[in-house]
């Protein structure tokens, strides 16, 4: 386990923007496409450093997605940036047909995932994207929880010869890992070892899960905690290993409980190791405007709800 005491906070989109600049310096195949929100997605940093390799296409996400396909066909490694709502849904079919089907090395980095878009309201809160993108063949789907793992994820995305969907937060996240975190696509990171209940968390929910695990530990319940930063391909081995040991699983995601992490875990458990499961996330509802903390509480996604979910699912053990 490679964790560091929280030093400061940073939105993962900032780590993305910074890493793009580093990558741009190291590899001139990197190009960045943007749809008029470069200050939000942080690609303005790349634009300043490498204006020739930055293309702001205006508010036209579908066009942007296919332009990236054209650039990838010509040997470039494009990053496409926008909000998650638009990356996964406005340009959904373009991603599927022009990027995923020809299996091009296009990296789709999207900000404002889930409730981290908080007071912008529902139109800008993507709570469906993981389920949508997961259904598309050839896609790799990532949501690292903090800045250091995001930096690693951006680099890993470049190395994968195929499309990657990288989900980022609008708001600041604590720094959990140190800079040498062993981030590998498709390999969960075990944050805590325990034998009583498994919590599988992704993205910003990793922090709620950590806090829940600490509170449960105070009650004598030991949590096996996995940072499942790769939703697809899912680290089935790590999941089964943990589920076999604990016999009870909770998933935690800033997303609808239909289609995303909870679904992926349910599929894997059903096929390999039927285990009681509770899925924490938005219970198939749209949210509303509000502060991030208020929203997590209101929709039953904060640490105390996770504690409760863990207790409930443990009662269902055989």
């Amino acid at each position: 386990m490679t964790t560091a005491a929280p030093k400061r906070e940073l939105p993962t989109r900032h780590a993305y923007g910074e890493t793009l600049v580093e990558l741009g310096r190291e590899d001139d195949r990197i190009v960045v496409l943007e749809a008029d929100i470069s200050k939000s997605t942080q690609t303005y940093r790349f634009a300043e450093a490498f204006p020739d390799r930055f293309f702001n296409v205006g508010v036209a996400e579908q066009n942007m997605m296919c332009m990236a396909a054209g650039a990838a066909i010509c040997g470039r490694i494009p990053f496409v940036s926008t909000y998650a709502v638009f990356g996964s849904m406005r340009a959904c079919e373009q991603m599927r047909t022009s990027v995923a089907y020809p299996k091009l090395n296009v990296n789709i980095a999207v900000s404002h995932a889930g409730l981290t878009a908080y007071d912008d309201g529902v139109t800008h809160q993507a709570v469906e994207d993981l389920g949508i993108v997961r259904s598309i063949p050839n896609m790799t789907v990532l949501q690292p929880c903090d800045a250091p793992s995001t930096r690693k994820a951006v680099r890993a995305a470049v190395e994968i010869d195929g499309p990657v969907y990288l989900r980022l937060t609008r708001i600041a996240m604590p720094i959990l890992y140190d800079d040498n975190v062993d981030f590998q696509i498709g390999k969960a990171i075990r944050l805590r070892t325990g034998g009583d209940v498994t919590i599988v968390a992704v993205g910003d929910m990793v922090f709620q899960a950590r806090e829940a695990a600490e509170r449960l530990a105070a009650q004598g319940i030991e949590v096996d905690l996995l940072d499942m930063h790769t939703i697809k391909p899912l680290d089935v081995d790590a999941l089964l290993d943990s589920a076999t040991k604990t016999g009870a699983v909770v998933t935690a995601e800033d997303h609808n409980v239909l289609g995303g992490l909870g679904s992926a875990v349910a599929e894997a458990l059903g096929e390999h190791c039927p285990t009681p499961l509770l899925r924490v996330g938005l219970q198939d509802t749209f949210a509303q405007s509000g502060s991030y903390g208020d929203l997590l509480r209101h929709y039953g996604m904060d640490a105390s709800h996770l504690v409760e979910a863990a207790q409930r699912v443990m009662r269902r053990k055989q």
């Binding site: 007071d119 309201g121 529902v122 800008h124 509303q288 405007s289 509000g290 502060s291 208020d294 929203l295």
Partner: peptide
Amino acid sequence: IGSFLHGH
């Protein structure tokens, strides 16, 4: 939160 005056 709770208001009908959403961000959009």
